[in-house]
């Protein structure tokens, strides 16, 4: 388990225990967190699990894949710390990870 903090645009903060091997997207969707959709279920196809990774954590969440890189140019309001939540796999090292949600996914 890792504690992941999701901060919505309006500041509403939710701390979730997410299982190792799960993802930032999956943890959110399984807990009915509003603001992350994840239509494709983690196939890196839909670009509806966009999050901003807290700068302090950005280097720890793994590399951006080729497909993810393309999709990240096409999300709503992309920023340098944008990632797709389905591509961030939860490990013990990510205990305490903080992500912020975009204004909208679609």
């Amino acid at each position: 388990m890792a504690k992941i903090t999701y901060i919505a645009r309006d500041g509403e903060t939710l701390v979730l225990d997410v299982e190792r091997g799960s993802t930032v997207m999956r943890g959110a969707v399984d807990n009915a967190l509003q603001g992350i959709i994840g239509d494709c279920g983690g196939a890196c196809s839909c670009a509806t699990c966009h999050v901003y990774v807290d700068p302090q954590w950005y280097d720890k969440v793994g590399e951006i894949g080729a497909t993810e890189e393309i999709l990240l140019e096409e999300v709503c309001d992309p920023q340098p710390n944008s990632r797709l939540g389905c591509q961030i796999t939860i490990t013990d090292d990510l205990d305490g990870l903080v992500v912020r949600l975009p204004e909208k996914q679609v």
Partner: peptide
């Protein structure tokens, strides 16, 4: 919109 690699492209 389905799930997985074939999930709806036009969603």
């Amino acid at each position: 919109f389905g799930r997985g690699i074939h999930s709806c492209l036009g969603m």
